[in-house]
Design a protein around this nucleic acid. Sequence first.
DNA 1: CTAGGGTTAG
Length: 758
Amino acid sequence: MTRQALPFFENLNPSILPCLYSAIASLSQSRQAHAYILKSGLLANTLFSTKLISQYANHRCFAQADLVLRSISAPSIPSFSTLIYSLNKSNRFTQSLNVFSRMLSHGVLPDSHVLPNVVKACGKLSVLKFGREIHGIVCKFGFDSDSVVQASLVHLYLKSDRIRDARNVFDRLPEGDVVTCGALLSAYARKGCVNEANEIFSGMQRLGVEPNLVSWNGMITGFNQSGNHTESVVMFQEMHSKGFQPDHITISSVLSAVGDMERLNIGIQVLCCVIKLGLLHCKFVISALMDMFGKCACAGELMKAFEETEEEVMDVGARNALITALSRNGLVDVALEIFERFRVQGRELNVVSWTSMIAGCSQNGKDIAALNLFREMQSVGVKPNSVTIPCLLPACGNIAALIHGKAAHGFALRTGITTDVHVGSALVDMYAKCGRIHLSRLCFDSIPNKNSVCWNAIMGGYAMHGNAKEAIYVFHLMQRKGQKPDFISFSCVLSACSQGGLIEEGWHFFNSMYKDHGIEAKMEHYSCMVNLLGRAGKLEEAYAMIKQMPFEPHACVWGALLSSCRLHNNIRLGEIAARNLFELEPNNPGNYILLSNIYASKAMWDEVDAVRDVMRSRGMKKNPGCSWIEIKNRVRMLFAGDKSNPQMIEIIEKLHKLNLELKKAGYLPNTSLVLQDVDEQDKEQILCGHSEKLAVAFGLLNTPPGSPLQIIKNLRICGDCHSVIKFISGFEGREIYVRDTNRFHHFKDGVCSCGDYW
DNA sequence: CTAGGGTTAG
């Protein structure tokens, strides 16, 4: 210190220094003291400069604090350290790291106080690279045995999802602490590393570190999140038996796990625990309870829980859990009613609430309601997200609402979420169900990191469109790209084979499923095979397959046999299949209709009457044939023999005109497909009334010439309609897409994409 | 002066 640099210093009475120091106690005093300290040269004194910095920083005057730091000619570690600590506390992590860099460039060595702070800043800023550099400094300057510094590195690596690096540091920790152990074990649990999590958990007990509530919760919540539900529940039971009291966080996680395991009895035990602990009025516990009841199919208990809960106690989460739980149990109408009530009451509903309601609708046949909700949510200012879109798209696909599907696609493009696998797969599926398989393929190709769901979606699409070759090609392609097929992939490829009548290939895939991939055939695979064999006319082979199934066949398997028997009019096997179906689903009218149609095809009218009598006596009616067509953004519904449509007269006229053209072209109505005991003239009338024909005529009348028509039907398309629509596609120059229960028919220039095999 | 846990939508 030179005389010139410190003009007042020598005149200062040393006895006032302590007074001056303690005077730096508030912001205004700090400002006065600052001026004085500056003049008197006291800044060079670490004690004074550090106190000033800390005062300024605590009052968030960071520029001032930094000014002080910069005006010291040889700043030391406490000054830097203080500023870095304060910056961290105010979440100014970038500045914090900048000050640290400056400190290093001044040649000031870090100490054990500043290091954890800068490591934390790296974690917050997700700058792992810089964090690793600091790790290097830590090693270089010998902080290997500093538990606090090392622990901060463990947290940095955990936060950066580098669990291996975290573990490496952890294993060299001189002493463990409950927080660091807890962070590591919950990271393992969340990742589903059950053994590692257990290892850390029991390891801490050996080290004399007692697991606390957070440690237990880390295990229970982590296991729940990674889908290790059993482990989560076991951990809870262990906690309980050790007399450790759970809290609301424990309860909400364990209930979620119990629900996924569908173990109601355990759920009731947890409920007892909840009551004993007095947690029944916690909003998290309430929503977890509703979720559990919903997953365990306890609609009664669910409603009871809802009715007994003050609506004020429920938060958005609880409301959302209720909506989902109701929809899950088929009570979508109740869910809609309660949702509406929440809206009227002005209760908070967020994007999860709207998305849950949309999902509930599209999963329970309320497709139009789902489309309306999507519109409404936006009009009340709730922004759909990357979960909303895949919940909505199935509704568009179900009713082939292509325009709405395209609008949702547009929304996804604008918000940049089309690369999300869920969104991508849902788009692939929607376009396939709306008949636009090439658009499916475009969406599929633009998903960057495809998972098995994406691959299955495009294969299923090709199967639905009867393009077996492409489905098989994709099946091989996915494996070349390193994606293992799962059991759904096999369902898709087998159903493609069955659409294409590829018996040999079907057998090949069916056999290789277990042999090459270790996947056991499930019900749906047997059903595909029975369908494949049966439709190709190998009915005995199909029946043999059913007889040697390793488990009891469900209705879908017998149903596949029965429809094949109808196709080939096989009475003996048809009766066997029907007998089994009548036991498995006595109230499904479709089975009775199929059997009676088989009898009718052989003119066995007494048997037909007998079957119809059974139906009548059980109060069953034939499912009415019904078709949907989207015209001018509106989905219209037409029933067979529909009289309510205001344009019906025009529709019938149109069909008559087309009939005349058909007859000119040499077409004969295929009246063998009318399976009622009526005369030929009436049969022709009945064929005319099929809903798909009405929909085609309706579409021709209401759309400009040359534009494509898009129809879906709730039953399988009949042979007569198939030939008529083929003719219309050529005669009227229209592309006509018809989706029936099984697949797509794309009519163009007088031919159908199914090649008349369906 | 560091540091860990939650339910509800695909």
